[in-house]
């Protein structure tokens, strides 16, 4: 008895010391990891003169001149609006298509559905550059080059496999009993899906929505090829153009970058749980 108490006392003491060490290492690592990002925010609030001369990490006083310059005197605000339009349309389209397909491969058994599941997994892994060239040709034939619908179509298609895969896993965890009950009450199967299964699948749908939005918001390669004039550029392409145009205006560039990362940061703050769930879904659940 006393031996056991001594063991646990010793253990809790050691535990506390280990916790302290954990905190120290974690704080140190998180700081190092976030330095590029913190420096961007700090620089964006410095005045131009201060940013280019002083090497202090923190701004001496908060200045908004860089944000003003970016939003008023460049057409970066157009890029932000474009990115919002594209990301929202892609997210809505992707959810509509993937809930149906995900439900189908989760609930119906048969060779077609099994093959489809594997196909969705494999398709996520194909190199994007391979389809870049033909995609450009297709969009040119459809007369969509330099128009926002071109990237909307491309992003929806490239995000579908992951979304379908993720939702399939989610629907798998919902018991059949729910549909059985609905069907006994006289609902068609599509009706049970629409009125019973979908409403309780909102966490899965939210995960897909957040992932699709972030992917569409962050994508650069496809946009750089399909969107070439200023009026239609999304933020990632706009930011690259900004780099070339205002090479030496670092503080303004930092302000533009800060604005570009805001939406994704908001998701990180309010929906971390869904993000983590989605990141795990692709690899851990089979």
């Amino acid at each position: 008895m006393s031996k056991a108490t001594a063991y646990y006392e010793k253990k809790s003491k050691r535990e506390r010391r280990a916790n302290l060490a954990t905190y120290i290492v974690l704080i140190f690592m998180v700081l190092i990891i976030n330095i590029p990002f913190l420096q961007m925010i700090m620089t964006s609030f410095k005045t131009r003169a201060e940013a280019m001369s002083s090497t202090n990490f923190f701004p001496s006083r908060l200045s908004f001149e860089n944000f003003e310059m970016v939003l008023m005197r460049t057409n970066f605000s157009t890029n932000i609006i474009n990115s919002f339009i594209v990301s929202i349309v892609v997210t809505v389209a992707c959810i509509m298509f993937s809930v149906m397909a995900g439900y189908a491969i989760s609930r119906f058994k048969g060779r077609v559905f099994n093959a489809y599941t594997t196909f969705m997994l494999v398709l996520q892994l194909f190199p994007g550059v391979l389809m870049l060239i033909p995609l450009f040709v297709i969009m040119r034939n459809l007369n969509l080059i330099d128009k926002l619908p071109s990237v909307m179509l491309a992003y929806t298609a490239t995000n579908l496999p992951f979304s379908i895969w993720l939702l399939k896993g989610f629907f798998n965890s919902i018991p059949f009993d729910i549909e059985q009950a609905g069907m006994i009450d006289g609902c068609s199967q599509f009706g049970t899906f629409w009125r019973l299964v979908l409403p309780i699948s909102m966490p899965g749908v939210s995960t897909v929505a957040i992932f699709t939005f972030i992917n569409a918001w962050c994508e650069f390669t496809v946009a750089s090829i399909l969107l070439r004039s200023d009026g239609v550029m999304t933020i990632t392409v706009g930011l690259q153009k900004f780099v070339q145009q205002y090479t030496q205006d670092w503080p303004a560039l930092m302000a533009a970058s800060t604005l570009s990362s805001l939406p994704t940061l908001i998701f990180l703050m309010i929906a971390q749980k869904y993000l983590v769930q989605g990141m795990g879904a692709g690899s851990v659940k089979g």
Binding site: P36, M40, T43, M52, I214, C218, W250, L265, L268, Q272
Partner: peptide, 26 residues
């Protein structure tokens, strides 16, 4: 959440951040 920041920010932003950090003058 703080450790997830690199993964969540757009690659275009990350590239700009790094080139500012790596700048040879300031």
């Amino acid at each position: 959440a703080l450790a997830l920041v690199p993964w969540i920010i757009p690659p275009a932003v990350a590239a700009v951040n790094w080139s500012w950090l790596f700048n040879d003058q300031v």
